[in-house]
């Protein structure tokens, strides 16, 4: 890219160029990120809304700023596309971002951070700074809208990059799901490392898989979102951090409706299985009795 313009001896520059190279040689369908040509400390990115969430099909753009002390200090992330989960043009408050420099570690990368960001989309914000708690329907509307056009932001050069990333993401993105009742918050802790398939509306939730972070799986165990109730809290709780493990869907109001049909489905299957078993046992028993001349017990007329 702009390698000759930078001092390759500068360790931060060297590292960032490595990451650019790695990002280009291992493209993902879930995200895309590139630095501006004029400044490799300024990146643009887009992430795809995670499957089986109200963000599915959405393409969310944002910017990343890498500090000059990178990778000792964390990058900061800011979304540009309205999404209903994170405020736009506000630094995102995750432990991977510069709101929590004490948690950042140099073995993470822009890629790690983006994977974590995707994983955080469907989690409950719990009042974290810079978070929004829109309803699922509102978020779906924003997801559909997000595909129409890339956000307008910054210089023409940056805009060109945003548009280029948008084209790429569109080419990889599955179609927007129809509003369907069968969607349910996936238990993402169990998802495998496979890439997302180019899938249409996927009614069988279990089959949809999402890419997990590479490397020492940092997203799962240590990346957290800061929880800070904005109502005046008792002083004791202000520094409480919620260790959000993977989206354990809390039963907030807007989440209950999609959960119910799934549970109903499950119950239906269980009853069907129980019914079938009873029928089979009955038939076997009947046959056995008949063979032993006790058929009258079951069938009076014979």
């Amino acid at each position: 890219m702009a390698e000759e313009r930078y001092n390759r001896k500068n360790p931060a520059v060297k590292r960032i160029l490595q990451e650019v190279k790695e990002m280009q040689s291992n493209p993902s369908d879930d995200f895309m990120s590139l630095p501006l040509e004029e400044n490799i400390f300024e990146w643009q990115f887009a992430i795809r809304g995670p499957a089986d969430s109200e963000f599915e099909g959405g393409i969310y753009h944002g910017r990343i700023q890498l500090p000059s002390e990178y990778p000792f200090k964390p990058p900061s992330f800011m979304l540009l596309t309205p999404n209903g989960r994170f405020e736009t043009q506000t630094k995102i408050c995750l432990s991977i971002s510069n709101h929590h420099p004490e948690h950042w570690q140099p073995s993470w990368s822009v890629r790690t951070a983006l994977v974590a960001l995707i994983a955080f989309m469907p989690t409950s914000p719990n009042g974290a700074l810079g978070s929004l708690d829109y309803t699922k329907d509102e978020r779906r509307v924003l997801a559909i809208k997000s595909r129409e056009a890339a956000p307008k932001f910054g210089s023409t050069e940056r805009q060109r990059l945003i548009d280029e990333i948008h084209e790429y993401m569109l080419s990889k993105a599955p179609p927007v799901p129809q509003v369907s009742t069968s969607q349910s918050p996936e238990d993402q802790a169990a998802k495998s490392e496979d890439e997302v398939q180019e899938n249409a509306v996927n009614t069988v939730a279990e089959e949809t898989q999402e890419e997990l972070p590479e490397g020492p799986a940092p997203a799962e165990d240590s990346i957290t979102e800061e929880v800070q109730p904005r109502e005046v809290p008792p002083p004791a709780v202000t520094s409480v951090q919620l260790q959000q493990t993977h989206p354990a869907p809390s039963a907030t109001l807007q989440q209950t409706s999609p959960v119910v049909p799934r549970q109903a489905d499950d119950r239906l299957f269980t009853w069907a299985a129980v019914g079938l078993t009873i029928a089979i046992v009955f038939l076997l028993l009947k046959k056995f009795m008949k063979a032993n001349g006790h058929s009258a017990f079951f069938m009076d007329e014979s």
């Binding site: 360790p11 060297k14 590292r15 490595q18 990451e19 790695e22 990778p71 140099p106 073995s107 993470w108 990368s109 890629r111 590479e214 490397g215 020492p216 799986a217």
Partner: peptide, 15 residues
């Protein structure tokens, strides 16, 4: 072997 991405640590080793 532990699964660390090479570029995240190689600069430190080299230095």
């Amino acid at each position: 072997k532990l699964g660390y991405t090479e570029f995240t640590f190689e600069d430190f080793f080299a230095l």
